[in-house]
């Protein structure tokens, strides 16, 4: 593979990242080829030592997605990180996906239920003073607060579980790096 082919395939694989990041990464590898050429190495030799540019691009993208998730735990960052891991295309991850889909569905269901229960608690609290409920006004209002607190706890628990799930997935995804894995093994 020539230098131009390598850079072209790397850039193509990185599409989706910020243009600036792609240019930075490509410039690093172009400089690498230039230095190696000055040291008398052939382009084919250098390209072989660097590894498959498509694979390298996929791992760099996965890493960027995970970095994003580590700095901000938002749903879209989570989606980006998970997409990057799927992009690694490891067979066992693809097998894992349907199972994971079930778990994610359950989490979303529980979270939605928590929101519903919270609203119900709010309604109970607000309606307490105006509705003739058994136990009196104070009991209705206290009950409403209790239900809301329970729902908040359930929601928080689901959120923690989700973060934990994505972190676990990232850990698992990183085990699948081939090019980026520090190639210490001789």
């Amino acid at each position: 593979m020539t230098k131009d082919q390598f850079i072209e395939r790397l850039k193509a694989g990185l599409s989706g990242l910020k243009a600036e990041a792609i240019a930075d990464i490509a410039a690093d590898y172009e400089a690498h080829f230039a230095e190696a050429a000055a040291a008398g190495r052939s382009e084919a030799d250098v390209a072989a030592a660097l590894g498959d540019p498509g694979r390298l691009a996929r791992e760099l993208k996965a890493e960027a997605g995970m970095k994003n998730w580590e700095s901000a735990k938002t749903p879209s960052a989570a989606a980006g990180a998970v997409l990057g891991i799927i992009g690694l295309g490891a067979l066992d991850i693809l097998v894992l996906l349907p199972i994971l889909g079930g778990v994610v569905g359950t989490l979303i269901g529980v979270f939605t239920a928590a929101i519903g229960i919270f609203i119900a608690g709010g309604v109970l609290f607000a309606a307490g003073p105006f509705t003739p409920l058994p136990g009196g006004v104070a009991a209705a209002m206290l009950g409403g607060v209790g239900v809301m607190a329970g729902a908040a706890a359930l929601g928080a628990f689901t959120a923690v579980l989700s973060v934990w799930l994505v972190n676990g997935l990232i850990w698992y995804g990183r085990l699948h790096y081939r090019v980026l894995k520090p190639a210490l093994d001789n």
Partner: peptide
């Protein structure tokens, strides 16, 4: 010195 793959340096330096 430690037999590191040469492509590994760039992601590491970026990080």
């Amino acid at each position: 010195a430690i037999g590191m793959g040469e492509g590994t340096i760039y992601p590491l330096m970026r990080r």
